[in-house]
Design a binder for these strands. Structure first.
Lengths: 343, 343
DNA sequence: TTGTAGGCGTTATCAA
DNA sequence: TTGATAACGCCTACAA
């Protein structure tokens, strides 16, 4: 491993000169710079990132922690975040906690291996976040509220438990016996929408039949297919409608219904959540809801705000904007819900 | 930022003592260890990862670079790699190059910010890989052959250009006028399968109609839907069959066909590639092919081999196994291909 | 324009 | 069992 020291020795220069030359600093003559850079190449010099970080007390890195990068919903989130971080000159890396593999994420947090972290998963505990967030290491948590007294754990894009738009819609359309399908249990989306479902039912004086709450175990299309085939098909007669806690599993379920020649919405009404691209192209197109987080701009703002924290000049105005943003859930009416009032 | 130095001062101990105490080293008395750890907590000490890496000359990190983490095919790859790396005690991070954002990946390579890197995308150039791979920084490149004289760029799971299994199958079933749909142009899967397609056609003396080679631009279901709707529907009469360079876009196309009441395979035969879970659940189920890389074990071996390189004791035997593994492509017969011989 | 020197936070090697 | 000291590779005042 050749270092700037070696180059300095070889060229009879001071390390500082070499360092500056390699960084194209104007204070070093053009000639020397050329010389040094050439020598570096010749000696196969590679910069040591750890040394730079140590010296600069900065990694220039933002880490994004989530459970499963392959869900369509996150595909969009990742792209938006990556774009936004790149625009501000940060590096951007993803740590996946799927299958209980959260060591990497936790080590990066515990050892400050990034300038900040964005967490969108329940798999990192409130305690850990509370313990390690600080003025010079802000942690943005998305999608959930963290119970903490640490002001540097900032929660955004969280939703309160509130009536579930899709459920309200179904009830309005005359549905009464409504089932619910949960996704990955560790996802707060699932938890929150289930709670919203219960709230809606309660507010309308409708009973929730616990045997009609199905667990897809995972949050991918295949999981939706499986739970439908194994558990839901048998119970179709007991329901007017079925709510899925996200579009991915709803899309999978739609395939299953198709395979079994079950006509939607004649036999049963179906709704999803998130309005992912695929939801528009099921047969028939899936009625779903937009989640307030489906907007590109919000991620730009989010990262700008995070950056302001990193620079230790929190942009409170921007943060307020972010908070006010939430809760614009809206139904996306397509063709998987029947109007039972028109019978 | 409190450091071990501060703790040492506070406790009137030497830094080395504090360091060892924090790492639970037996050479330090139980009592001192307790004392130090307590003080550390009290002073909100957090370990500085950069300093550790610098001192240890090791990051314990393996970086996985790919273009788009949300494709179903990679979902599986990521999970397998993550599991395998975790088993060997490595941290595992993902860098996505989608949208031209390859700075992060390149900086990590150029500044040795990981112990090794696994690259599965064309977006990192042969030159860069060649320049930065070395005995103590091995780079494994998957899915493509890198033109290099650097022995520490190891290519695996690459495929030679060879007749495309799906195309052979179609021809066998009597198809002649065959179209092809490419995915993301930068993906070698697309490039390679297109070449395989051309090879197959050539070997059977069939002409390739260039106007029947469609570009889905991206590699996701939505891209498949779009290209089908905008370009392919108009050309159905000119084709017996259509080959998709991957299942994701084929699945999207299937949805589009459904939406337009085009019956598969009566109107046109369709085949995909990769055998992703969703391919089994289209209507009708998609005929596709398995790619040799769809096996869990191969990733375990891959990471073990990479580890042997990191430890500077390359396991050549294992590597040979990996190389011999390739090329077990097989057709997965389902219901989207009509047998034209039986007319 | 270049050189000197100190330090970033850890770990590791000795010596005490 | 603990302490002193020297790295690790780089950057940045400040001095020359």
């Amino acid at each position: 491993m050749t270092s700037i020291k070696d180059i300095a020795k070889e060229l009879n220069l001071a390390v500082s000169t070499v360092s500056m030359a390699l960084n194209d600093n104007d204070r070093i003559s053009k000639e020397t710079r050329r010389l040094v850079q050439e020598k570096a190449r010749e000696m196969k010099y590679v910069k040591n990132g750890a040394a730079v970080d140590l010296q600069k007390q900065k990694t220039n890195l933002i880490l994004f922690v989530l459970n499963d990068a392959s869900r369509s919903f996150f595909s969009y989130v990742i792209k938006s975040l990556q774009k936004a971080t790149a625009e501000l000159g940060y590096d951007f890396l993803i740590s996946t906690t799927y299958g209980g593999h959260r060591n990497t994420a936790e080590r990066f947090i515990k050892e400050r291996r990034s300038d900040a972290v964005i967490v969108w998963t329940k798999t990192i505990s409130d305690e850990l976040l509370t313990e390690y967030a600080s003025a010079d290491f802000p942690i943005f948590v998305l999608g959930r509220k963290v119970k903490t007294d640490n002001p540097y754990v900032r929660c955004h894009l969280t939703s309160e438990v509130k009536p579930l738009v899709t459920c309200e819609y179904l009830i309005e359309k005359g549905h009464r016996r409504i089932g619910f399908v949960t996704g990955f249990a560790e996802s707060f989306g699932t938890v929150l929408s289930l709670q919203g479902f219960r709230l809606s039912m309660k507010q309308h004086g409708l009973p929730v039949d616990e045997s009609l709450i199905f667990d897809a175990v995972g949050s991918q299309a295949e999981d939706g297919y499986n739970v439908t085939e194994k558990q839901i098909l048998d119970r179709l007669d007991d329901m007017d409608a079925l709510i899925f806690s996200n579009d991915d599993i709803a899309v999978g379920a739609m395939r299953c219904f198709n395979d079994h020649n079950i006509v939607i919405p004649d036999r049963i009404s179906v709704v999803g959540r998130h309005n992912i691209p695929a939801s528009a192209t099921t047969v028939p197109p899936l009625t779903t809801m937009t989640h307030s987080h489906s907007d590109t701009e919000i991620y730009t703002k989010l990262v700008k705000c995070l950056d302001s924290y990193i620079r230790m000049e929190p942009d409170l105005k921007l943060e307020k904007e972010l908070n006010d943003y939430q809760a614009k859930d809206m139904i996306v009416e397509r063709q998987t819900v029947r109007d039972l009032n028109k019978q």
